[in-house]
Amino acid sequence: MKFTVNGKPVEVEAGENTPLLYVLRNDLGLVGTRFGCGSGQCGACFVMVDGRPMASCDLPVSFAMNKSVTTVEGLSGKVQKALLAEQAAQCGYCMSGIIISAEFLLQKNPHPSESEVRSALDKNLCRCGSHNRVVRAVMRASREQA
C-alpha cells in the first residue's frame, strides 16, 4: 500500500482494513498520533488526509492510498511554538490531535475569533482542563503568523 506521509512516499504491508493509526504508530514509528478511544469520539488520533482532519483510529489505511497524510511530526510548528509560549498543557496527551485541528482552522480562517477557535476544537477532548491556555495559544499563533 503506497501513500505519502509528511511529504515522503511510504509503502507498508498491512491489511487494508487496518486503522491508519496503527500503521502510523507501529509500522512507521510515528507515535505522535495517540490512541484515545478508537471510535472517533476524542480527537487524540487526528491527522490530516489531503489537508482535512480525520480520526485515524477508525480510518482504514486503504482510504489513505495514493493520498497525502500529515501527522503532528510533519507540521510547520507555528501552533506548537505558541503552545510552548503559553505553556498550554498538563499531560499533553490530547495535544497532537488539538494541534492538527488548530492548524486546519488557521489555514481556513487565519484570524478566527475566540469562539470560532473554541468551536473548531470541540471535537477534541482534553481531560486536564488545558482548554483556555490552548485557546490563548491558538489566538497567539494567529497573531504571530505572517
Binding site: 507515535v31 503532528v72 499533553g92
Partner: peptide, 21 residues
C-alpha cells in the same frame, strides 16, 4: 520563577513521551 516545563517541547513535537509509545 516560571521555568518552562522540560517535557512539553517533546510532547508538542509528537515525540515518544508516554508508556503507550
Amino acid at each position: 520563577t516560571n521555568a518552562p516545563r522540560l517535557d512539553l517541547p517533546g510532547k508538542f513535537a509528537g515525540r515518544a513521551s508516554y508508556v503507550q509509545d
